[in-house]
Design a protein around this nucleic acid. Sequence first.
DNA 1: CAAATAGTGTCTGTCAGACAATATGCC
DNA 2: GGCATATTGTCTGACAGACACTATTTG
Lengths: 244, 244
Amino acid sequence: MNESEFLAGYDPRAYPAVAVTVDVVALTIRGGELHVLLVQRGEQPYAGRWALPGGFIRPGEDLPEAAARELAEETGLAERVHIEQLASYGAPERDPRMRVVSISYLAFAPGLPDPRAGSDAADAAWHRADRLPELAFDHERILGNGLERARDKLEYTPLATAFAGERFTISELRAVYETVWGVPLHAGNFHRKILSVPGFVESTGETTESGGARGGPRAKLYRAGDARLLHPALLRPAREEEVR
Amino acid sequence: MNESEFLAGYDPRAYPAVAVTVDVVALTIRGGELHVLLVQRGEQPYAGRWALPGGFIRPGEDLPEAAARELAEETGLAERVHIEQLASYGAPERDPRMRVVSISYLAFAPGLPDPRAGSDAADAAWHRADRLPELAFDHERILGNGLERARDKLEYTPLATAFAGERFTISELRAVYETVWGVPLHAGNFHRKILSVPGFVESTGETTESGGARGGPRAKLYRAGDARLLHPALLRPAREEEVR
DNA sequence: CAAATAGTGTCTGTCAGACAATATGCC
DNA sequence: GGCATATTGTCTGACAGACACTATTTG
Protein backbone atom coordinates (compact mmCIF):
# COMPACT_ATOMS: atom_id res chain seq x y z
CA MET A 1 0.00 0.00 0.00
CA ASN A 2 1.44 3.35 -0.88
CA GLU A 3 0.75 6.86 0.22
CA SER A 4 -1.96 7.72 -2.22
CA GLU A 5 -4.03 4.64 -1.58
CA PHE A 6 -3.44 4.90 2.11
CA LEU A 7 -4.70 8.45 2.15
CA ALA A 8 -7.72 7.50 0.12
CA GLY A 9 -8.74 4.72 2.44
CA TYR A 10 -7.69 5.95 5.84
CA ASP A 11 -8.30 8.93 7.98
CA PRO A 12 -5.07 9.38 9.89
CA ARG A 13 -6.93 11.23 12.63
CA ALA A 14 -8.56 7.93 13.44
CA TYR A 15 -5.15 6.48 14.33
CA PRO A 16 -3.63 6.71 17.77
CA ALA A 17 -2.00 10.13 18.02
CA VAL A 18 1.62 10.34 16.91
CA ALA A 19 3.61 13.10 18.54
CA VAL A 20 6.63 14.64 16.86
CA THR A 21 9.38 16.16 18.94
CA VAL A 22 12.78 17.62 18.27
CA ASP A 23 15.70 16.82 20.55
CA VAL A 24 18.89 18.80 20.47
CA VAL A 25 22.43 17.57 21.03
CA ALA A 26 24.11 20.89 21.86
CA LEU A 27 27.89 20.82 22.11
CA THR A 28 30.30 23.43 23.32
CA ILE A 29 33.80 23.55 24.67
CA ARG A 30 34.30 24.86 28.18
CA GLY A 31 37.62 24.84 29.91
CA GLY A 32 39.20 22.61 27.31
CA GLU A 33 36.56 19.92 27.67
CA LEU A 34 33.69 18.98 25.40
CA HIS A 35 30.33 19.57 27.06
CA VAL A 36 26.74 18.58 26.28
CA LEU A 37 23.63 20.47 27.33
CA LEU A 38 21.23 18.38 29.42
CA VAL A 39 18.02 19.17 31.25
CA GLN A 40 16.71 17.37 34.30
CA ARG A 41 13.21 16.06 33.89
CA GLY A 42 10.64 17.23 36.40
CA GLU A 43 7.84 14.85 35.45
CA GLN A 44 7.25 11.16 35.00
CA PRO A 45 8.41 9.16 33.25
CA TYR A 46 12.09 9.37 34.08
CA ALA A 47 11.46 12.14 36.61
CA GLY A 48 14.78 13.43 37.92
CA ARG A 49 16.68 11.80 35.08
CA TRP A 50 18.78 13.94 32.74
CA ALA A 51 17.67 14.23 29.13
CA LEU A 52 18.41 16.11 25.94
CA PRO A 53 16.59 19.41 25.62
CA GLY A 54 13.65 19.11 23.28
CA GLY A 55 9.94 19.28 22.88
CA PHE A 56 6.98 19.06 20.59
CA ILE A 57 6.95 20.85 17.29
CA ARG A 58 4.36 23.58 17.12
CA PRO A 59 1.80 24.21 14.42
CA GLY A 60 3.26 26.13 11.53
CA GLU A 61 6.81 25.62 12.76
CA ASP A 62 9.44 23.97 10.58
CA LEU A 63 11.75 21.37 12.11
CA PRO A 64 15.00 23.39 12.21
CA GLU A 65 12.98 26.27 13.60
CA ALA A 66 11.72 24.08 16.43
CA ALA A 67 15.24 22.89 17.21
CA ALA A 68 16.58 26.44 17.29
CA ARG A 69 13.74 27.48 19.57
CA GLU A 70 14.37 24.64 22.00
CA LEU A 71 18.03 25.51 22.14
CA ALA A 72 17.37 29.22 22.57
CA GLU A 73 14.97 28.53 25.43
CA GLU A 74 17.73 26.82 27.37
CA THR A 75 20.75 28.87 26.43
CA GLY A 76 19.28 32.23 25.51
CA LEU A 77 21.52 32.13 22.48
CA ALA A 78 20.44 31.79 18.90
CA GLU A 79 23.22 33.55 17.03
CA ARG A 80 26.58 32.15 16.08
CA VAL A 81 25.13 28.67 16.54
CA HIS A 82 25.54 26.09 13.86
CA ILE A 83 22.62 23.66 13.79
CA GLU A 84 21.98 20.67 11.56
CA GLN A 85 19.74 17.65 11.44
CA LEU A 86 21.09 14.45 12.90
CA ALA A 87 18.66 11.52 12.65
CA SER A 88 15.17 10.41 13.60
CA TYR A 89 14.00 7.87 16.14
CA GLY A 90 10.62 6.27 16.21
CA ALA A 91 10.72 2.92 17.94
CA PRO A 92 7.18 2.23 19.16
CA GLU A 93 8.08 1.93 22.82
CA ARG A 94 10.72 4.63 23.08
CA ASP A 95 8.31 6.78 25.09
CA PRO A 96 6.03 4.83 27.44
CA ARG A 97 3.21 7.37 27.24
CA MET A 98 2.48 7.38 23.53
CA ARG A 99 3.96 7.05 20.11
CA VAL A 100 6.63 9.71 19.83
CA VAL A 101 8.84 10.24 16.79
CA SER A 102 11.83 12.40 17.55
CA ILE A 103 13.91 14.35 15.05
CA SER A 104 17.31 15.04 16.56
CA TYR A 105 19.45 18.05 15.81
CA LEU A 106 23.09 18.75 16.43
CA ALA A 107 24.21 22.21 17.52
CA PHE A 108 27.71 23.60 17.98
CA ALA A 109 28.70 26.90 19.43
CA PRO A 110 31.72 28.54 21.00
CA GLY A 111 31.81 28.93 24.77
CA LEU A 112 28.09 28.97 25.44
CA PRO A 113 27.04 30.50 28.78
CA ASP A 114 25.46 28.62 31.65
CA PRO A 115 21.91 27.57 30.86
CA ARG A 116 19.20 29.97 31.94
CA ALA A 117 18.32 29.06 35.48
CA GLY A 118 14.66 29.97 35.81
CA SER A 119 13.54 28.79 32.41
CA ASP A 120 11.38 25.77 32.97
CA ALA A 121 13.09 22.45 33.44
CA ALA A 122 13.87 21.22 36.92
CA ASP A 123 17.46 21.99 36.03
CA ALA A 124 19.64 22.51 33.01
CA ALA A 125 23.41 22.21 32.89
CA TRP A 126 26.42 21.51 30.74
CA HIS A 127 27.84 18.04 31.31
CA ARG A 128 31.25 16.81 30.29
CA ALA A 129 30.84 14.51 27.32
CA ASP A 130 33.11 11.95 28.92
CA ARG A 131 31.24 11.88 32.24
CA LEU A 132 27.60 11.57 31.41
CA PRO A 133 24.82 10.58 33.79
CA GLU A 134 22.26 7.99 32.86
CA LEU A 135 19.84 9.52 30.39
CA ALA A 136 16.08 9.25 29.87
CA PHE A 137 14.45 7.47 26.94
CA ASP A 138 16.87 6.53 24.15
CA HIS A 139 18.78 9.74 24.58
CA GLU A 140 22.06 8.01 25.23
CA ARG A 141 21.92 6.55 21.75
CA ILE A 142 20.96 9.90 20.21
CA LEU A 143 23.76 11.64 22.05
CA GLY A 144 26.26 9.01 20.97
CA ASN A 145 25.26 9.51 17.37
CA GLY A 146 25.62 13.26 17.78
CA LEU A 147 29.13 12.98 19.17
CA GLU A 148 30.16 10.64 16.39
CA ARG A 149 28.73 12.98 13.80
CA ALA A 150 30.61 15.91 15.29
CA ARG A 151 33.88 14.01 15.21
CA ASP A 152 33.28 13.05 11.58
CA LYS A 153 32.37 16.54 10.48
CA LEU A 154 35.56 18.01 11.86
CA GLU A 155 37.37 15.96 9.27
CA TYR A 156 35.87 17.33 6.12
CA THR A 157 34.13 20.59 7.06
CA PRO A 158 35.33 23.78 8.72
CA LEU A 159 33.03 23.04 11.64
CA ALA A 160 35.84 23.46 14.15
CA THR A 161 35.74 27.19 13.56
CA ALA A 162 32.16 27.16 14.91
CA PHE A 163 33.58 26.12 18.29
CA ALA A 164 36.20 28.85 18.27
CA GLY A 165 35.58 32.54 18.69
CA GLU A 166 35.31 35.16 15.98
CA ARG A 167 39.08 35.38 15.73
CA PHE A 168 41.32 32.54 16.82
CA THR A 169 44.86 31.24 16.70
CA ILE A 170 45.92 28.02 15.06
CA SER A 171 46.66 26.64 18.49
CA GLU A 172 43.13 27.36 19.65
CA LEU A 173 41.81 25.59 16.58
CA ARG A 174 44.07 22.66 17.34
CA ALA A 175 42.69 22.56 20.88
CA VAL A 176 39.20 22.17 19.40
CA TYR A 177 40.28 19.17 17.37
CA GLU A 178 42.13 17.63 20.28
CA THR A 179 39.15 18.12 22.57
CA VAL A 180 36.51 16.72 20.24
CA TRP A 181 38.64 13.87 18.97
CA GLY A 182 40.21 13.21 22.35
CA VAL A 183 43.68 12.72 20.89
CA PRO A 184 46.80 14.90 20.94
CA LEU A 185 47.88 16.30 17.58
CA HIS A 186 51.32 17.32 16.45
CA ALA A 187 51.51 21.11 16.67
CA GLY A 188 53.87 21.67 13.75
CA ASN A 189 52.16 19.35 11.31
CA PHE A 190 48.73 20.63 12.29
CA HIS A 191 49.80 24.19 11.71
CA ARG A 192 51.14 23.52 8.25
CA LYS A 193 48.13 21.45 7.30
CA ILE A 194 45.54 24.02 8.32
CA LEU A 195 47.23 26.73 6.30
CA SER A 196 47.47 24.40 3.29
CA VAL A 197 43.71 23.85 3.05
CA PRO A 198 42.29 26.54 0.78
CA GLY A 199 39.57 28.64 2.36
CA PHE A 200 39.70 27.05 5.82
CA VAL A 201 41.07 30.08 7.63
CA GLU A 202 42.11 33.53 6.50
CA SER A 203 44.58 35.79 8.21
CA THR A 204 43.36 38.91 9.98
CA GLY A 205 46.85 40.44 9.91
CA GLU A 206 46.70 40.74 13.68
CA THR A 207 48.39 38.83 16.47
CA THR A 208 47.47 38.09 20.04
CA GLU A 209 48.12 40.88 22.52
CA SER A 210 50.64 38.82 24.40
CA GLY A 211 52.28 35.45 24.27
CA GLY A 212 50.91 32.32 25.85
CA ALA A 213 50.36 32.06 29.60
CA ARG A 214 53.52 30.03 29.96
CA GLY A 215 55.57 31.86 27.38
CA GLY A 216 55.99 31.76 23.65
CA PRO A 217 55.68 34.29 20.86
CA ARG A 218 52.48 36.10 19.95
CA ALA A 219 50.35 34.03 17.65
CA LYS A 220 48.76 35.26 14.43
CA LEU A 221 45.00 35.59 14.49
CA TYR A 222 42.73 34.06 11.85
CA ARG A 223 39.05 34.09 11.07
CA ALA A 224 36.95 31.41 9.36
CA GLY A 225 37.42 31.27 5.61
CA ASP A 226 34.81 30.68 2.93
CA ALA A 227 35.35 26.97 2.38
CA ARG A 228 32.34 24.72 2.96
CA LEU A 229 34.36 21.54 2.59
CA LEU A 230 37.96 20.89 3.50
CA HIS A 231 40.07 19.69 0.65
CA PRO A 232 42.18 17.83 1.43
CA ALA A 233 40.38 16.67 4.56
CA LEU A 234 41.94 16.51 8.01
CA LEU A 235 41.73 12.83 8.71
CA ARG A 236 41.68 11.48 12.22
CA PRO A 237 44.46 9.12 13.16
CA ALA A 238 43.54 5.68 11.80
CA ARG A 239 40.94 3.82 13.82
CA GLU A 240 41.57 0.22 12.91
CA GLU A 241 38.91 -1.04 15.25
CA GLU A 242 36.17 0.76 13.33
CA VAL A 243 37.02 -0.67 9.96
CA ARG A 244 35.64 -4.18 10.31
CA MET B 1 9.70 25.23 27.39
CA ASN B 2 11.04 21.72 27.40
CA GLU B 3 9.51 18.33 26.96
CA SER B 4 8.58 17.65 30.55
CA GLU B 5 6.81 20.93 31.13
CA PHE B 6 5.22 20.77 27.75
CA LEU B 7 3.81 17.36 28.46
CA ALA B 8 2.56 18.53 31.83
CA GLY B 9 0.69 21.49 30.43
CA TYR B 10 -0.45 20.27 27.05
CA ASP B 11 -2.44 17.43 25.69
CA PRO B 12 -0.87 16.71 22.31
CA ARG B 13 -4.10 15.15 21.13
CA ALA B 14 -5.61 18.64 21.29
CA TYR B 15 -3.17 19.74 18.60
CA PRO B 16 -3.89 19.49 14.90
CA ALA B 17 -3.01 15.97 13.85
CA VAL B 18 0.57 15.37 12.75
CA ALA B 19 1.03 12.49 10.37
CA VAL B 20 4.34 10.65 10.09
CA THR B 21 5.28 8.96 6.84
CA VAL B 22 8.32 7.20 5.50
CA ASP B 23 9.48 7.82 1.93
CA VAL B 24 11.99 5.56 0.24
CA VAL B 25 14.65 6.52 -2.27
CA ALA B 26 15.30 3.10 -3.82
CA LEU B 27 18.25 2.88 -6.17
CA THR B 28 19.31 0.11 -8.49
CA ILE B 29 21.40 -0.25 -11.61
CA ARG B 30 19.68 -1.49 -14.74
CA GLY B 31 21.39 -1.69 -18.08
CA GLY B 32 24.36 0.31 -16.90
CA GLU B 33 22.23 3.24 -15.73
CA LEU B 34 21.25 4.33 -12.24
CA HIS B 35 17.51 4.07 -11.67
CA VAL B 36 15.11 5.30 -9.00
CA LEU B 37 11.81 3.70 -8.06
CA LEU B 38 8.83 6.04 -8.44
CA VAL B 39 5.09 5.56 -8.11
CA GLN B 40 2.45 7.54 -9.92
CA ARG B 41 -0.08 9.15 -7.64
CA GLY B 42 -3.71 8.25 -8.18
CA GLU B 43 -5.25 10.82 -5.86
CA GLN B 44 -5.20 14.53 -5.27
CA PRO B 45 -3.10 16.40 -4.53
CA TYR B 46 -0.56 15.90 -7.30
CA ALA B 47 -2.75 13.25 -8.97
CA GLY B 48 -0.88 11.72 -11.89
CA ARG B 49 2.42 13.12 -10.66
CA TRP B 50 5.29 10.75 -9.89
CA ALA B 51 6.42 10.45 -6.30
CA LEU B 52 8.70 8.44 -4.05
CA PRO B 53 7.12 5.27 -2.67
CA GLY B 54 6.09 5.76 0.91
CA GLY B 55 3.23 5.90 3.35
CA PHE B 56 2.14 6.31 6.93
CA ILE B 57 3.83 4.46 9.70
CA ARG B 58 1.57 1.95 11.38
CA PRO B 59 0.94 1.47 15.07
CA GLY B 60 3.64 -0.63 16.66
CA GLU B 61 5.89 -0.39 13.62
CA ASP B 62 9.41 0.95 13.89
CA LEU B 63 10.65 3.39 11.26
CA PRO B 64 13.09 1.11 9.38
CA GLU B 65 10.42 -1.56 9.46
CA ALA B 66 7.95 0.79 7.79
CA ALA B 67 10.49 1.71 5.12
CA ALA B 68 11.26 -1.94 4.38
CA ARG B 69 7.56 -2.69 4.14
CA GLU B 70 6.91 0.15 1.71
CA LEU B 71 9.78 -1.00 -0.46
CA ALA B 72 8.69 -4.62 -0.36
CA GLU B 73 5.17 -3.67 -1.35
CA GLU B 74 6.44 -2.16 -4.57
CA THR B 75 9.28 -4.46 -5.46
CA GLY B 76 8.33 -7.70 -3.79
CA LEU B 77 11.90 -7.88 -2.56
CA ALA B 78 13.10 -7.55 0.96
CA GLU B 79 16.29 -9.58 0.95
CA ARG B 80 19.67 -8.48 -0.21
CA VAL B 81 18.52 -4.89 0.13
CA HIS B 82 20.60 -2.41 2.06
CA ILE B 83 18.43 0.25 3.73
CA GLU B 84 19.42 3.22 5.84
CA GLN B 85 17.90 6.41 7.14
CA LEU B 86 18.44 9.52 5.10
CA ALA B 87 16.81 12.63 6.61
CA SER B 88 13.51 14.05 7.79
CA TYR B 89 11.35 16.75 6.31
CA GLY B 90 8.67 18.63 8.14
CA ALA B 91 8.05 22.02 6.55
CA PRO B 92 4.52 23.02 7.56
CA GLU B 93 3.19 23.36 4.01
CA ARG B 94 4.98 20.46 2.37
CA ASP B 95 1.70 18.57 2.14
CA PRO B 96 -1.34 20.76 1.45
CA ARG B 97 -3.74 18.47 3.31
CA MET B 98 -2.26 18.40 6.77
CA ARG B 99 0.91 18.52 8.74
CA VAL B 100 3.06 15.63 7.50
CA VAL B 101 6.53 14.84 8.76
CA SER B 102 8.38 12.45 6.50
CA ILE B 103 11.35 10.28 7.42
CA SER B 104 13.21 9.35 4.26
CA TYR B 105 15.16 6.15 3.74
CA LEU B 106 17.73 5.17 1.18
CA ALA B 107 17.75 1.66 -0.28
CA PHE B 108 20.24 -0.01 -2.61
CA ALA B 109 19.96 -3.32 -4.33
CA PRO B 110 21.40 -5.17 -7.29
CA GLY B 111 19.28 -5.43 -10.43
CA LEU B 112 15.87 -5.21 -8.85
CA PRO B 113 12.97 -6.53 -10.94
CA ASP B 114 10.20 -4.45 -12.45
CA PRO B 115 7.83 -3.16 -9.80
CA ARG B 116 4.78 -5.27 -9.11
CA ALA B 117 2.14 -4.18 -11.56
CA GLY B 118 -1.12 -4.74 -9.75
CA SER B 119 -0.03 -3.64 -6.32
CA ASP B 120 -1.89 -0.44 -5.59
CA ALA B 121 -0.50 2.76 -7.03
CA ALA B 122 -1.71 4.01 -10.38
CA ASP B 123 1.68 2.93 -11.64
CA ALA B 124 5.16 2.13 -10.39
CA ALA B 125 8.31 2.13 -12.45
CA TRP B 126 12.06 2.54 -12.41
CA HIS B 127 13.17 5.89 -13.79
CA ARG B 128 16.65 6.81 -14.92
CA ALA B 129 18.18 9.06 -12.30
CA ASP B 130 19.36 11.47 -14.98
CA ARG B 131 15.96 11.80 -16.64
CA LEU B 132 13.46 12.38 -13.87
CA PRO B 133 9.92 13.64 -14.28
CA GLU B 134 8.57 16.42 -12.13
CA LEU B 135 7.87 15.01 -8.68
CA ALA B 136 5.12 15.56 -6.13
CA PHE B 137 5.59 17.38 -2.83
CA ASP B 138 9.22 18.07 -1.94
CA HIS B 139 10.29 14.70 -3.29
CA GLU B 140 12.76 16.19 -5.76
CA ARG B 141 14.73 17.56 -2.84
CA ILE B 142 14.55 14.27 -0.96
CA LEU B 143 15.65 12.35 -4.01
CA GLY B 144 18.51 14.74 -4.61
CA ASN B 145 19.71 14.24 -1.06
CA GLY B 146 19.47 10.48 -1.53
CA LEU B 147 21.57 10.51 -4.67
CA GLU B 148 24.17 12.68 -3.04
CA ARG B 149 24.32 10.38 -0.03
CA ALA B 150 24.74 7.35 -2.26
CA ARG B 151 27.63 9.00 -4.11
CA ASP B 152 29.29 9.89 -0.83
CA LYS B 153 28.90 6.45 0.66
CA LEU B 154 30.59 4.77 -2.28
CA GLU B 155 33.71 6.62 -1.25
CA TYR B 156 34.17 5.28 2.23
CA THR B 157 31.98 2.19 2.52
CA PRO B 158 31.77 -1.06 0.54
CA LEU B 159 28.27 -0.04 -0.55
CA ALA B 160 29.08 -0.62 -4.21
CA THR B 161 29.06 -4.35 -3.59
CA ALA B 162 25.37 -4.00 -2.64
CA PHE B 163 24.67 -2.97 -6.23
CA ALA B 164 26.61 -5.87 -7.68
CA GLY B 165 25.59 -9.52 -7.61
CA GLU B 166 26.73 -12.18 -5.19
CA ARG B 167 29.92 -12.68 -7.16
CA PHE B 168 31.34 -9.98 -9.39
CA THR B 169 34.41 -8.96 -11.33
CA ILE B 170 36.46 -5.87 -10.66
CA SER B 171 35.19 -4.44 -13.93
CA GLU B 172 31.61 -4.88 -12.83
CA LEU B 173 32.42 -3.11 -9.60
CA ARG B 174 34.04 -0.32 -11.56
CA ALA B 175 30.89 -0.02 -13.66
CA VAL B 176 28.93 0.56 -10.45
CA TYR B 177 31.20 3.42 -9.47
CA GLU B 178 31.15 4.91 -12.94
CA THR B 179 27.36 4.71 -13.09
CA VAL B 180 26.65 6.22 -9.70
CA TRP B 181 29.34 8.87 -9.93
CA GLY B 182 28.74 9.51 -13.60
CA VAL B 183 32.42 9.72 -14.42
CA PRO B 184 34.79 7.32 -16.22
CA LEU B 185 37.48 5.76 -14.07
CA HIS B 186 40.85 4.46 -15.11
CA ALA B 187 40.59 0.67 -15.33
CA GLY B 188 44.14 -0.14 -14.31
CA ASN B 189 44.34 2.22 -11.38
CA PHE B 190 40.90 1.21 -10.16
CA HIS B 191 41.83 -2.44 -10.25
CA ARG B 192 44.97 -1.96 -8.22
CA LYS B 193 43.20 0.31 -5.74
CA ILE B 194 40.31 -2.05 -5.02
CA LEU B 195 42.67 -4.92 -4.28
CA SER B 196 44.74 -2.72 -2.00
CA VAL B 197 41.86 -1.89 0.34
CA PRO B 198 41.79 -4.54 3.08
CA GLY B 199 38.50 -6.38 3.37
CA PHE B 200 36.76 -4.70 0.47
CA VAL B 201 36.61 -7.77 -1.77
CA GLU B 202 37.83 -11.31 -1.38
CA SER B 203 38.71 -13.70 -4.17
CA THR B 204 36.48 -16.68 -4.87
CA GLY B 205 39.24 -18.42 -6.81
CA GLU B 206 36.95 -18.66 -9.81
CA THR B 207 36.86 -16.78 -13.07
CA THR B 208 34.13 -15.88 -15.51
CA GLU B 209 33.03 -18.62 -17.88
CA SER B 210 34.19 -16.69 -20.90
CA GLY B 211 35.88 -13.45 -21.80
CA GLY B 212 34.06 -10.19 -22.37
CA ALA B 213 31.46 -9.84 -25.13
CA ARG B 214 33.95 -8.03 -27.28
CA GLY B 215 37.00 -10.00 -26.33
CA GLY B 216 39.48 -10.04 -23.49
CA PRO B 217 40.63 -12.61 -20.98
CA ARG B 218 38.44 -14.24 -18.35
CA ALA B 219 38.17 -12.10 -15.24
CA LYS B 220 38.61 -13.30 -11.67
CA LEU B 221 35.47 -13.37 -9.55
CA TYR B 222 35.23 -11.75 -6.12
CA ARG B 223 32.69 -11.51 -3.36
CA ALA B 224 32.14 -8.75 -0.82
CA GLY B 225 34.68 -8.77 2.01
CA ASP B 226 34.13 -8.06 5.69
CA ALA B 227 35.17 -4.40 5.77
CA ARG B 228 32.56 -1.94 6.98
CA LEU B 229 34.66 1.08 6.09
CA LEU B 230 37.12 1.50 3.25
CA HIS B 231 40.56 2.47 4.38
CA PRO B 232 41.99 4.18 2.46
CA ALA B 233 38.82 5.56 0.91
CA LEU B 234 38.14 5.70 -2.81
CA LEU B 235 37.81 9.41 -3.33
CA ARG B 236 35.86 10.85 -6.20
CA PRO B 237 37.80 13.01 -8.60
CA ALA B 238 38.06 16.47 -7.05
CA ARG B 239 34.92 18.57 -7.28
CA GLU B 240 36.23 22.09 -7.01
CA GLU B 241 32.78 23.58 -7.44
CA GLU B 242 31.50 21.95 -4.26
CA VAL B 243 34.19 23.22 -1.99
CA ARG B 244 33.14 26.85 -1.62
C1' DC C 1 44.81 -11.02 -37.15
C1' DA C 2 42.52 -6.83 -34.99
C1' DA C 3 40.25 -5.18 -31.19
C1' DA C 4 38.90 -5.25 -26.52
C1' DT C 5 39.66 -6.33 -21.88
C1' DA C 6 42.24 -8.17 -17.49
C1' DG C 7 45.84 -7.39 -14.86
C1' DT C 8 50.63 -5.57 -13.68
C1' DG C 9 54.61 -2.30 -13.66
C1' DT C 10 56.61 2.30 -13.47
C1' DC C 11 56.92 7.11 -12.61
C1' DT C 12 55.60 11.55 -10.58
C1' DG C 13 53.37 14.75 -7.57
C1' DT C 14 50.87 15.30 -3.26
C1' DC C 15 50.43 14.76 1.36
C1' DA C 16 50.69 12.95 6.26
C1' DG C 17 53.63 12.21 9.98
C1' DA C 18 58.22 12.17 12.35
C1' DC C 19 61.60 15.16 13.58
C1' DA C 20 64.48 19.25 13.71
C1' DA C 21 65.43 24.12 13.94
C1' DT C 22 64.66 28.89 14.91
C1' DA C 23 62.36 32.74 16.99
C1' DT C 24 59.66 34.94 20.57
C1' DG C 25 57.89 36.00 25.02
C1' DC C 26 56.52 34.59 30.01
C1' DC C 27 58.34 33.40 34.53
C1' DG D 1 68.35 32.37 31.88
C1' DG D 2 65.12 28.51 31.32
C1' DC D 3 61.15 26.96 29.38
C1' DA D 4 56.99 26.80 26.58
C1' DT D 5 55.03 28.01 22.46
C1' DA D 6 54.67 29.71 17.36
C1' DT D 7 56.18 28.89 13.04
C1' DT D 8 58.95 26.99 9.36
C1' DG D 9 61.94 23.42 7.23
C1' DT D 10 63.41 18.66 6.02
C1' DC D 11 62.87 13.91 5.22
C1' DT D 12 60.38 9.58 4.42
C1' DG D 13 56.72 6.50 3.24
C1' DA D 14 51.96 5.92 1.40
C1' DC D 15 49.15 6.68 -2.25
C1' DA D 16 46.53 8.64 -6.42
C1' DG D 17 46.70 9.37 -11.21
C1' DA D 18 49.03 9.13 -15.77
C1' DC D 19 50.90 6.04 -18.76
C1' DA D 20 52.88 1.87 -20.62
C1' DC D 21 52.95 -2.99 -21.20
C1' DT D 22 51.76 -7.99 -21.40
C1' DA D 23 48.50 -11.68 -21.63
C1' DT D 24 44.13 -13.52 -23.00
C1' DT D 25 40.00 -14.05 -25.48
C1' DT D 26 36.32 -12.91 -29.09
C1' DG D 27 34.96 -12.19 -33.74
